[in-house]
Amino acid sequence: MSKEKSAKAASPVKKQRKAWWHGENFHGYIFMIPTLIGWPLFCAYPMIWSAYCAFCDWDGINSPKWAGLKNFKYILTIDPVFKKSLLITLEYALINVPIMLILGLALAMLLNKTIRGIKIFRVLYYLPVIIPSVATLVLWNFIFKQDTGILNVMLRSAGLKPVGWLTDEKIVLLSLSIIRWWTVGGTMMIFLSGLQSVPGDLYEAADLDGAGKWAQFRHITIPMITPILFLQLITGLIGGLQAFNEASIMTGGGPNYGSHFINYDIYQTAFGSSKYGRACAEAWILFIIIAILTMITFSKSEAYVYYENE
């Protein structure tokens, strides 16, 4: 420390004359090289290209042909399925995200004690998340089968009517939601780490003041984990609005387009009908929806998120 002071006193001017290749600017950019290459390549260029194609007719094989607003006109006015897709996508995301958060938090609190075997339990809860989604969806497809799936077989043997898990328009979203809830282990783990990062002395202080468990929860736990809550909300929303695997692997868009998520429609339009221009237009519409919802969530967050360090 004293060395620095004396060095400073001895040559006050020297500090400014550092060679440019020692400076923070230069080093900053050197270390940023991966992003400097990756972002334009995998982010900027595809975005610009697909934005251009959204206004074109493109079969993915030959060059795009300019077509003006034709694609947007089709999606927003002519397509008989888009409104339903939109509704389904929003419903699926907006209902499941809060449920996952609440369930994840509740389970995290349940598993937040160092009782015997807790490590094993945590892993078992996390198990459904580890299994690749391809395998998971095949498994649940097998379980939800109308005639021979284990669920309906059990219902029938109990004398109840079998449920059209994947064949009834009104139930298919529920079935897919169940699969999502099954993988709540991931959310739970993140909440677990959040819960454990709350300083213990806050709880002790509250105990001394005579606060009950519920009051502690409301006034200490929840506020302290709002950053995590917020992060989970945003990622859950962004991910939920892009649901795809369920439709692609399990339902093929669902009975009567009952699970025809927008992201799935984009895939079908591009790789099924070879209308890449229209698919790009739809992808941009989805992107705008996601952006709007995210911005709303962000702006509301100022009110309730408590940051320790910032």
Partner: peptide
């Protein structure tokens, strides 16, 4: 860039 739907980038990439 985390918000971009995967589908938007698949074909150009």
């Amino acid at each position: 860039s985390m918000m971009i739907p995967g589908m938007t980038t698949v074909m150009p990439v």
